[in-house]
Nucleic acid binder design. Structure first.
Length: 568
RNA sequence: UGGGGGAUCGUCUAGCGGUAGGACGCCGGCCUUUGGAGCCGGCUACCUAGGUUCGAUUCCUAGUCCCCCAGCCA
């Protein structure tokens, strides 16, 4: 596993880090961290944070990025996610070396620090109910009121907090709160809750604890304990920063990490929030967390997206503080760019139409040379069998070709990729439906690919497979999960309203060239003229399944669309 | 209506008082045995109003609009 090259794209956070290093702040060290809660799977929004945090650390000599599980809430977390998150980070191409941490490993230290806060009279045990605490908190425009328990003595607080830990009280009966300012205009400073009682089994600490620290308490302290220099998080934590700084200052730690916030990633025609992704999975609107339509890392991986493409995308979208929605087309661009460079080309017919070459000898099979990757000559060539009966794409024939349609039509010629120029003589139709069922063509023997004598040009080259050699496959085409670009931000109640009912299109009876017969799950190909496809994990040698990662750019589709929508 | 943030091409993003640049996208053209890729060209932006200045996207003032915060979630 190698860590990717440092990026050159700058942003305001990199500038802060560079300035801090130049000024010798934090002793010139750079230590960042990626701190997921293990309560769900990672998505491409997390990838932005991962690329940023690991990127910044990797750029600084001696810099390092920790992976820390922010596991302070026993009721939501699961070791399954701990595993999956590590896999995803590694798959993305990043390495935390031996810097794997868990907030739960700090529970004892956190507890000790809470005691010291109490002894400084900076924290107290509150015995109001959750509802009462909410009432006392005030509102956005009204000041809060002190809890009647705010003036408990230090001794009483120490005693009560110890009894909280000892398990003497039921959930919700007491909390530990910081004693800051109930009149603060910043609600986060109105005596925030530091510990709550939760009689629950923590996936790592079991029943050792029944009190758990809150994010606002555990996070800054974890950062300080690990010597994090730059604690990078998303915008919604901006007004927690004064509290973060308060906790760090009270901790008297030799390390003073600084929190820096950036805008989270939004993408058009998808959703990114854990809650919405969970709902899609729970309601079976998608097949699971690795459904290739999802922006989860597992989903993108199953779809055939490469970690390199995701990294390039994350570097190019930049990092700033303004809310933004990045177009899915930009992600697709980076996917195509990467896949174009590396994918072997093959021929696959998704919607077959039978073609008989009337003048081609029956029983003869020619092995034609096909280039594996024109972008990479070292990928070599392969043989593709050619014979009298072939299949081509239904879309590559029109009985009544529109203007600008260069492909096959009665009386017209096209080149078969790596093969011959053929001419359509007649089309057989189903007498019932009128649909074209079979084409009769003639081939020009002088035009075989690579033969020197024939210089004739035709307007189009189409892909094909030999009927008796082709392998049957199923192909899944993915379309946008949402019809609305702004699904991410649409009204809460009906956010599923713009779900695309046709986001998954299953094609069976597709015919692929024989070289694909035992293609391994996960392997990626370009189906010439169509797009990039990968072999699904469910695929078997005799029951191939391909997922379309992304289509090729389709100029003809655009031309045809423009024809149908006359200019205004 | 309190507090915290943010406004630059259609979309992301750069700019740090001196010709508003890049990428995606879109539109043309060239090339092409993938209507792919590649190459060339074009398109469109500083939220508003004042002020400071020789000069303002940048600094100041006042607005406008957008986002976040009232979990014992993170």
């Amino acid at each position: 596993m190698s860590t990717p090259e440092p990026s050159t794209s700058s942003n305001f956070i990199r500038e802060i880090v560079a300035a801090d290093r130049a000024a010798g702040k934090h002793g010139g060290r750079v230590v960042t961290r990626f701190p997921p809660e293990p309560n769900g799977y990672l998505h491409i929004g997390h990838a932005k944070a991962i690329v940023l945090n690991f990127g910044i650390a990797n750029e600084a000599s001696g810099g390092i990025c920790h992976l820390r599980f922010d596991d302070t809430n026993p009721t939501t977390e699961d070791p399954e996610y701990v595993q999956a998150i590590q896999e995803d980070v590694r798959w993305l191409g990043f390495d935390w070396h031996d810097r794997l941490f868990y907030a739960s490993d700090y529970f004892e230290q956190l507890y000790a620090f809470a005691i010291s806060l109490i002894k400084k009279d900076k924290a107290y045990v509150d015995s109001l109910t959750a509802d009462q605490i909410r009432e006392h908190r005030g509102t956005l425009t009204e000041s809060g009121r002190d809890s009647p328990y705010r003036t408990r003595s230090v001794d009483e607080n120490v005693n009560l907090f110890a009894r909280m830990r000892a398990g003497e009280f039921a959930d919700g009966t007491h909390v530990l709160r910081a004693k800051i300012d109930m009149g603060s205009p910043n609600i986060n400073l109105r005596d925030p809750i530091l510990y709550r009682i939760r009689h629950a089994i923590h996936y790592r600490t079991g029943t050792a604890w029944c009190i758990y620290p809150s994010y606002d308490f555990a996070h800054p302290l974890s950062d300080a304990i690990e010597g994090i220099t730059h604690s990078i998080c998303t915008l919604e934590f901006e007004d927690h920063r004064p509290l973060y700084d308060w906790v760090v200052a009270e901790a008297d730690s030799p390390h003073r990490p600084q929190q820096i916030e950036f805008a989270r990633l939004n993408l058009t025609s998808t959703v990114m929030s854990k809650r919405k992704l969970l709902e899609l999975v729970d309601k079976k609107l998608v097949s699971g967390w690795d459904d290739p339509r999802l922006p989860t890392l597992k989903g993108l991986r199953r779809r055939g997206v490469t970690p390199e493409a995701i990294r390039a995308f994350c570097e190019h979208i930049g990092v700033a503080k303004r809310d933004a929605i990045v177009e899915m087309q930009l992600l697709e661009h980076f996917i195509r760019e990467d896949l174009n460079r590396r994918s072997p080309r093959v021929m696959a017919v998704l919607r077959p139409l039978k073609v008989v070459l009337d003048n081609y000898p029956d029983g003869v099979v020619e092995e034609l040379d096909a280039v594996n990757n024109p972008e990479d000559i070292s990928a070599g060539t392969r043989k593709v069998p050619f014979s009298r009966t072939l299949y081509i794409e239904q879309d590559d024939f029109r009985e009544n070709p529109p203007k600008q349609f260069f492909r096959l039509a009665p009386g017209r010629e096209v080149r078969l990729r790596y093969g011959y120029i053929i001419k359509c003589v007649s089309a057989t139709k189903d007498p019932q439906t009128g649909a074209v069922t079979e084409l009769h063509c003639t081939y020009d023997p002088e035009t075989r690919s690579g033969s020197a004598q024939e210089q004739r040009k035709v307007k189009a080259t189409i892909h094909w497979v030999s009927a008796s050699h082709a392998v049957t496959a199923a192909v899944r085409l993915y379309h946008p999960l949402f019809l609305s670009d702004r699904a991410n931000l649409s009204a809460e109640q009906d956010w599923t309203g713009s779900l695309n009912p046709q986001s998954l299109e299953l094609l069976t009876g597709c015919l692929v060239e024989p070289s694909l017969h035992s293609a391994a799950p996960g392997s990626r190909f370009q189906f010439e003229r169509q797009g990039y496809f990968c072999v699904d994990p469910d695929s078997l040698p005799d029951a191939l399944i391909f997922n379309r990662t992304v289509s090729l750019k389709d100029t003809w589709a655009r031309v045809e669309k423009a024809r149908q929508t006359p200019p205004r």
